[in-house]
């Protein structure tokens, strides 16, 4: 009897490509910098740490923490993007377009205005908590506005995209107003608000990593439910999925995953939007493998963006968020072109 085949034929190579790319990006990120560390030495330092060697010190106290933050941020943003795009069946959804980033920024800026100590190095974790709360707040606000605007009647989730954009603009406006009232603190905050990966933030990663693990575990466990929701809520409901419950849990998990990444290193945009679109042609639309592959690719992309940020204008370090925005802006146009302006725009995910 002939077997029915499952999944895209290129899925296996796609996953291998993602894993290989991540390893390569990780290696590059650790070796390349203002000071070149040879790969052999890098591996030696990973195996046995010698505190008297400058390279070992550099690696363990600066580059590895930085790389871990990049991996976490990239993976979380990408996973959140995959799930939000599947839930909304809209290719333009991402944590950033849902107000997570602007909410987090507003809360941190507001917190710093009310309580200036928040920006001192001793309060890194409190800063992260504030950002986490803000990210969740932004997304909840966007969802509430969308619901008021009648999200349920819109199969492609346009009202959510509009609500997200509206909320993002509103929150950024408030943020700008607060920043303008306090010029002294503006430069302190500007660094955070443009999303920078910095080895100092590793403390926050140590505090927040478990949020991402729980959220991604939840999303993986819900991958079959999410696949069915991708086909439409009536189809999913009739196949046995509790659509309202699963949507809410998945939404919450992806918002928390993204917000925890923003809490670690500030609002890094566009990974959540871009990576699922790179991953889908290789891995297919099924949420399980797509989550895994997107996490790999998001982490790899974030490592490369971080490397570019460090190397582009030496000796100055650019913000990773700025590099991502430059990359993502171009990609945004490509997505709109493919999904909204092409001939087959009517029948897409």
């Amino acid at each position: 009897m002939r077997r029915y085949k499952n999944g895209l034929p290129q899925r296996r190579s796609g996953l291998l490509l993602g894993a290989g790319g991540l390893l390569l990006a990780l290696g590059l990120n650790l070796c390349v910098g203002t000071r070149w560390i040879a790969p052999v030495e890098m591996i030696g330092a990973l195996i046995e740490f010698d505190p008297d060697e400058l390279d070992h010190f550099l690696l363990w106290y600066q580059r590895i923490p930085r790389a871990l933050i990049a991996v976490y941020t990239g993976a979380m943003m990408a996973c959140a993007g995959v799930v939000l795009q599947s839930l909304m069946r809209n290719p333009l959804t991402s944590p950033a377009t849902l107000g997570v980033n602007s909410g987090a920024t507003l809360f941190v800026v507001l917190g710093a205005a009310l309580w200036p100590q928040l920006l001192t190095p001793g309060f890194l974790v409190a800063q992260g908590m504030t950002a986490l709360a803000g990210g969740v707040f932004g997304a909840v606000l966007a969802l509430t506005v969308a619901r008021l605007a009648g999200l349920a009647q819109d199969p492609r989730g346009f009202s959510l995209i509009l609500a997200g954009a509206l909320v993002a603009m509103l929150l950024s406006g408030v943020t700008q107003a607060i920043l303008l009232s306090d010029p002294q603190r503006r430069s302190d905050l500007l660094g955070w608000a443009s999303g920078s990966i910095n080895h100092v933030y590793a403390d926050r990663l140590a505090v927040f990593w478990w949020i991402g693990v729980i959220c991604c575990g939840t999303l993986l466990a819900l991958s079959r439910h999410l696949n069915l929701i991708l086909l439409g809520s009536d189809k999913a409901g009739s196949t046995g999925v509790n659509v309202p419950l699963v949507s809410r849990v998945a939404m919450l998990a992806s918002v928390f995953a993204a917000a925890s990444a923003v809490a670690v290193c500030g609002p890094v945009g566009f990974i959540g939007l871009v990576v699922p679109h790179i991953a889908r042609p290789l891995l297919g639309a099924a949420v399980g493998p797509l989550l895994l592959g997107s996490a790999l690719m998001g982490a790899g992309l974030c490592l490369i963006a971080d490397l570019a940020a460090r190397m582009a204008f030496q000796p100055y370090t650019l913000h990773t968020g700025v590099v991502m925005d430059l990359l993502g802006g171009a990609f945004f146009v490509a997505i709109i072109r493919r999904h909204y302006l092409s001939g087959r725009a009517g029948q897409l995910a």
Binding site: R89, K235, T239
Partner: peptide, 20 residues
């Protein structure tokens, strides 16, 4: 009306039917 997501294969679609 059924949504037809990009890149989902027929085999995967069929497997989803056994969700219950």
């Amino acid at each position: 009306d059924n949504h037809c997501p990009d890149y989902i294969t027929l085999g995967e679609l069929i497997e989803l039917s056994a969700f219950s």
